[in-house]
């Protein structure tokens, strides 16, 4: 890991929906190779922040730079080049409903990596196996998957191109605890081997404790703190106190220190 090269820079970001401001003067930096956990209460704008970073939402004010570039200002061809280096897992999966699970994952492999359909399907099943989905899921349509299976299939699609930056919106929500732990392990293994950067929105305290290098807390329309877990947990803020020192926060921490 070289000297803290920033991958994502959010500067003075403001997002409004009509009258309602979701973010105001928000600053955040994500560095190469780190796993950044993003936490915050429901409706504090984590998903909106993610959408702003990947260029799906034009900020009301402020700038977002990914790999040092402003996505929304790039010509389409270069923007597409840049977007290939992303992997995005949306909160509700967003699998293509008219394709089977395997086809969903094979699509970017065929379109961007130029694989043949056969190779792509083979690799797609490998990715599915990685996230813990068996062969018979590959041929199913998204409508016939369970909630947790949808999450995993979407994760496999996000991982399809071995992206340099992964944006994950609540990847472990709806997974059973065993799968969630396996996911944490997978994320760490892949990050260590491939060195990618992860922007991880999560409510799962265990994921936070096991995987994240730094944690950013979204509250009061901005990033309250972004630092290592110990420092964040020690911050003097009522919400943070309740979050990390509430019954669940204590349980997750103690299970880790044992």
């Amino acid at each position: 890991m070289n000297a803290r090269e920033p991958i994502v820079e959010v500067r003075d970001l403001t997002n409004r929906f009509g009258e309602q401001a979701v973010h105001e003067h928000l600053d955040l930096t994500v560095y190469r190779g780190e796993i950044l956990g993003v936490v915050g209460g429901s409706g504090t704008g984590k998903s909106v922040l993610l959408r702003s970073i990947v260029g799906l939402r034009r900020p009301s004010e402020g700038a977002v730079r990914v790999f040092g570039q402003d996505l929304l200002a790039l010509p389409p061809e270069q923007r597409s080049q840049l977007e290939r280096r992303f992997g995005v897992l949306f909160q509700d999966g967003a699998l293509f409903s008219s394709m089977t699970v395997a086809e969903n994952i094979a699509l970017p492999l065929i379109e961007h990596a130029g694989l043949t359909r056969e190779d792509a399907t083979r690799l797609a099943t490998v990715k599915l196996a990685l996230v813990g989905l068996s062969m018979d899921t590959a041929g199913k349509y998204p409508a016939s998957l369970s909630g947790g299976m949808t999450k995993r299939a979407a994760l496999a699609r996000a991982l399809a191109l071995d992206p340099e930056v992964l944006f994950l919106d609540e990847p472990t929500a709806g997974l059973d605890p065993i799968s969630a732990a396996a996911f944490d392990q997978l994320l760490l293994t892949l990050r260590n081997a491939l060195g990618f950067t992860v922007f991880l929105v999560t409510h799962d305290l265990d994921t936070l404790y096991t995987t994240c290098d730094r944690v950013a807390v979204l509250s009061q329309k901005r990033v309250l703190v972004a630092d290592t877990l110990e420092k964040v947990a020690a911050t003097d803020d009522p919400w943070i106190r309740d979050y990390f020192h509430g019954p669940r926060g204590r349980a997750a921490r103690s299970s880790l220190s044992i």
Binding site: V126, A129, G132, M135, A138, T189, A193
Partner: peptide, 20 residues
């Protein structure tokens, strides 16, 4: 070590893989 871990993760996933 991290590459060995990656190979092992992929390998064990592949073990569950069978021909379509």
């Amino acid at each position: 070590a991290e590459r060995a871990a990656l190979l092992q993760t992929v390998g064990s996933a592949l073990a569950a893989y069978c021909k379509p």
